[in-house]
């Protein structure tokens, strides 16, 4: 709220001063709707599809994209700077590609000295769980030389608060574990995921480039691409095998499974998106 207050204050200040901002034909506000699209790579869409899966339960090889819907309002502070606030909504799913770490069973000799490996094998839980997210961004657009906000090419940046909620059916998300070293016995069980509805919040930083066109002097058509910088930096580790092959043995506990995997997934959705916005300038 504090940052919104600062933004509002700045707008009022510049509106009263004889700023050098022309806006577009004197119009300095624009508000509208934006559609963001990102490929569902190594992650699932809300309806369980992925272009190139990660060994999870999503239908791999599909033409799958995550979509995000945005409402935004922007104001031309100066000839080259535009400030904006946006709320983005998206829905996705995690297809439970990651395995769950196990607890050391008592009285079992489970380390095979010949193969230097544990002889347990776990699988990811069955099915998937859904995630809905809301991103709040305060951002600034810096227009390139010769362009005048809100018209032209720009660079966009600003802090983003990602909030998201995971909803899961714990009874459907059963996992299994097999002990090869001893009996080859497979045990199916329901991990302790925690609540069926879990909220999380993450901070990120929005970066991108875009091009704003004005049609018929009032309609704004804005297109380009942007990234969430933190999510982008995690790209390599997120798509590496860590979460599927080794996580089962080394990392994700039952109770942290949703938090960890939901974080991966939302990073994936917000990592890189192309967008097309349509708005009204006034």
């Amino acid at each position: 709220m504090r940052i919104l207050f600062i933004l509002l204050f700045t707008i009022l200040l510049t509106a009263h001063g004889r700023a050098q901002t022309p806006g577009y034909m004197g119009k300095r506000f624009q508000a509208g709707y934006g559609l963001y699209v990102g490929p569902a790579l190594r992650g699932s869409t809300a309806n369980g599809r992925t272009i190139f899966g990660d060994g999870g339960n999503a239908e791999s090889g599909s033409f799958a994209f995550n979509t995000t819907h945005e409402a935004y309002i922007e104001y031309a502070l100066t000839k080259i700077i535009m400030a904006g606030f946006s709320v983005r909504y998206y829905k996705t799913a995690y297809d439970n590609a990651a395995r769950i770490g196990y607890t050391q069973p008592n009285n079992y000799y489970n380390y095979n000295y010949y193969s230097n490996n544990y002889d347990f094998s776990t699988t990811g839980p069955k099915g998937s769980y859904s995630i809905t997210g809301l991103n709040y961004s305060v951002y600034f657009k810096i227009y390139f030389r010769n362009f005048s906000a809100p018209w032209g090419r720009y660079f966009i940046f600003g802090p983003t608060l990602r909030t998201y909620t995971a909803k899961l059916d714990t009874t459907a998300m059963k996992a299994s574990i097999t002990d090869y070293s001893y009996s080859g016995k497979t045990l199916t069980y329901t991990p302790l995921y925690g609540d069926t509805k879990q909220h999380f919040t993450t901070f990120d930083f929005l970066l991108g480039f875009g091009r704003n066109r004005i049609l018929y002097d009032h309609v704004s058509l804005d297109y380009g691409f942007n990234v969430n910088a933190v999510a982008f930096l995690y790209a390599l580790s997120d798509v590496s095998g860590a979460r599927s092959s080794t996580a089962g043995q080394l990392g994700i506990t039952e109770i942290s499974y949703i938090e960890t995997t939901a974080k991966w997934r939302t990073r994936g959705v917000n990592r890189l998106n192309a967008f097309l916005k349509i708005g009204y300038i006034f």
Binding site: N146, R213, I214
Partner: peptide, 26 residues
């Protein structure tokens, strides 16, 4: 005097003409 790697779209022209008058006046 500005050069754009763009088509001569209506928004470009309007924007520049408006800028001209705005800067002249203010």
């Amino acid at each position: 005097y500005e050069v754009f790697r763009e088509k001569d779209t209506r928004d470009l022209i309007n924007s520049k003409i408006y800028q001209t008058f705005f800067e002249l006046k203010h």
